[in-house]
């Protein structure tokens, strides 16, 4: 009898946990480090926020290419996806780069890599937060 009453509760708990984990992953993507902060992993939260933030500020400061949705080829589209990985920091990068990109110089080219790396790094951190919220070892 006890088994009959408690059995449906387990899938419900799993479903709820999965939804919370997904929300934490999305939060971590939108604001770098927020996913870990919601789970009180303060060191990781601060590290993610600072490293992604520094890479975005340096990348935009070096006048790297901040890709937009109207890309001409696959590389532009991939660059846009990578840049979007920074979440709200994508808007920060666009706001910081008032004069537009300049990839004719080495700094601009490096800046493009810095921005893309910041996005991919933030996606990795968000995925890490999602997995940790699901109860995987983190």
């Amino acid at each position: 009898m006890t088994g009959e009453t408690s059995a449906p509760a387990v899938p419900q708990q799993n479903s709820r946990r999965e939804r919370i984990a997904f929300a934490i992953g999305v939060a971590g993507w939108l604001v770098p480090g927020l996913g870990h902060a919601l789970m009180k992993m303060w060191g990781r939260a601060v590290a993610c926020f600072l490293t992604v933030g520094v890479l975005v500020i340096l990348g935009a400061g070096m006048r790297g290419n901040v890709f937009n949705s109207s890309g001409n080829d696959a590389f532009d589209s991939l660059g846009y996806l990578a840049d979007l990985g920074t979440g709200t920091f994508y808007m920060l990068a666009r706001a910081l780069e008032r004069d537009g990109s300049d990839v004719s110089r080495a700094e601009g080219d490096y800046g493009t890599r810095f921005l893309a790396t910041a996005g991919v790094l933030n996606l990795l951190a968000a995925l890490h937060a999602y997995e940790a919220a699901r109860g995987r070892k983190a």
Binding site: V54, M62, F114, L121
Partner: peptide
């Protein structure tokens, strides 16, 4: 705009990624 040498850019990049 930030003006970094190749080595400075590599150092900053490597440091940020390593910390993360």
């Amino acid at each position: 705009g930030f003006k970094l040498t190749h080595l400075q850019a590599m150092l900053l990049f490597a440091l940020a990624i390593s910390i993360a």
